[in-house]
Amino acid sequence: MKRLLALVAAAGALAGCGPVRATSNLLDAEVQIQAARTAGAEKLAPYEWTAANLYIRKAREEVSYSDYQAGVDFAEKASRFANQAREQAMANANAADEAIAPPAGTNP
């Protein structure tokens, strides 16, 4: 009887891991997407920005079908693309600033 209870408890604990992990990864990806938005990725890194948003949408869809592993995979991809979008946007913004700014030591 104790073994049966232990087995049922273990199965219940493992059943809860998928949704928790998927939710955690979705939240992480959303934070990365917000950081990319703040960096101006919509205009400065449109490829990465679009990929991140499409992957987060697909991750939510898969989680809604209770396919948690696929949701985790897509959320991780969304997070990676969002991070790349933020980095690319910041690099493009810095390059644009350097192109506009006069050389150091000169008077405008």
Score class of each variant (00 low, 15 high):
G40V: 13
A75L: 03
E42W: 04
A59S: 13
Q34L: 15
Y55H: 14
Y55T: 11
N92T: 02
D67W: 03
L26S: 12
R57D: 05
P19A: 13
I56N: 09
A51W: 00
T38I: 14
Y47A: 14
F74N: 05
L27I: 12
V63Q: 00
A70N: 08
T23V: 07
E30K: 10
M90F: 07
K43A: 13
A35G: 05
A70R: 01
A45V: 06
S79L: 12
A78P: 07
D28V: 15
E30C: 10
R21F: 13
G18K: 06
V20Y: 09
F81S: 15
K58P: 02
R86Q: 09
I33A: 11
S66H: 03
G40R: 04
G18V: 11
N25A: 14
T50N: 07
Y68C: 07
V72N: 02
A91Q: 11
S24T: 10
E61I: 07
R86A: 05
A22I: 03
Q69T: 04
P46D: 15
N53H: 12
T23N: 15
G71W: 10
N53S: 05
A82W: 02
Q84S: 07
E76T: 07
K58S: 04
E61Y: 10
Y65Q: 07
G71C: 10
S79H: 04
Y55A: 11
N92W: 02
L54K: 14
E76I: 06
I33H: 06
N25G: 11
R57T: 00
S66F: 05
R57F: 06
A89H: 09
V72Q: 10
E62M: 13
S64W: 03
W49P: 02
L44A: 03
A91D: 14
R37F: 02
Q84K: 10
S64N: 12
S24W: 11
A75C: 05
S79G: 14
I56A: 12
F81H: 07
Q34W: 04
Q88W: 01
G18P: 11
A51K: 13
G18T: 10
S64V: 01
G18I: 08
R80W: 01
L44G: 08
G18E: 14
N53G: 13
E76Q: 13
A29G: 10
